[in-house]
Design a protein around this nucleic acid. Structure first.
Lengths: 143, 143
DNA sequence: TTTAAATGATACCATTTTAGTATCATATAA
DNA sequence: TTATATGATACTAAAATGGTATCATTTAAA
């Protein structure tokens, strides 16, 4: 069971990095911090930009910055940017005939579960994640 | 996002069919009811048998029956039978280095979500599903 | 005005996972 | 002894995921 794919995972890490910087950051800086393959990360940033999660500027002093405040971008947004919500309803058949015409308790149940996942992803913002990590680091220092 | 794969989906449907029959059922009966490819379904039933979800009898009047009462087999059991829980912790890197040494707020969060999914799958038994479908059919008749 | 450093678009390839098929061996009741 | 079952297992096909590479365009600064 895989909630998000590597693409989205790298994306989140990249976003956290950019959020922490709080200024325009070039892709090169991102993939030297987040340990992702160069080309792959570039593509990921482009997707985030196309999907309006990031705003980019071209040219020499170009780079990426968050399109919104960290508390306004959720994991769900990121997951959706990479097509993570397209196969809806928890049904591997996408609601097409599956021998269980009309009613399907299983599909219903899986749909419910899926909704909860989306709900939780939707409620987790970049800010939440940043805070979590800060607290952990603090804990560490305290010991 | 895919909570279970087709294999597991077919498996659940097969189990529901067998549960409803409440007697030994040959594979042929299963795949004429559940619309799954013949060979694929045979393999699935074998897995369920190997994993002690079903009990099989060979030979002429052979077939499959539930190893336990319908309320004692959960979706989680089925999902696990098909290896659905092997990549733990919601981390696409399976806990290996991901540039985020030590702390990882994302991993932590995804782990939490995953746990909830398992919890819900664990609490949903074949009996629950059978009942759901019965109720729906009843609703239908009432209208 | 040229050049270096950036993103945009996009086509392509590799790997892994999922889905499905086919075959032969073994057991057993009629 | 034969028809009807499951067991084991090897194989292939298709789809999803992960990753690479190239060329075009933009822009600030030398």
């Amino acid at each position: 069971m895989k909630i998000i794919k590597k693409e989205a995972d790298y994306a989140v890490r990249a976003l956290l990095f950019i959020a922490a910087k709080n200024e325009r950051v070039p892709a090169s800086a991102v993939y030297s911090s987040v340990k992702a393959p160069r080309s792959f990360m570039r593509k990921i940033l482009q997707v985030l930009s196309r999907e309006k999660v990031l705003v980019s500027e071209k040219g020499r002093a170009g780079g990426f910055r968050l399109a919104r405040k960290p508390e306004e971008t959720s994991l769900l947004t990121v997951v959706e940017a990479f097509g993570g919500r397209k196969s809806r309803g928890g049904c591997p058949f996408d609601g097409r005939a599956c021998g269980n015409y009309g009613f399907c308790g299983l599909r219903e149940k899986l749909g419910e579960i899926e909704e909860r996942i989306f709900e939780k992803l939707g409620k987790t913002s970049l800010k939440n994640l940043l805070r979590r990590e800060d607290e952990k680091k603090k804990d560490y220092k305290d010991n």
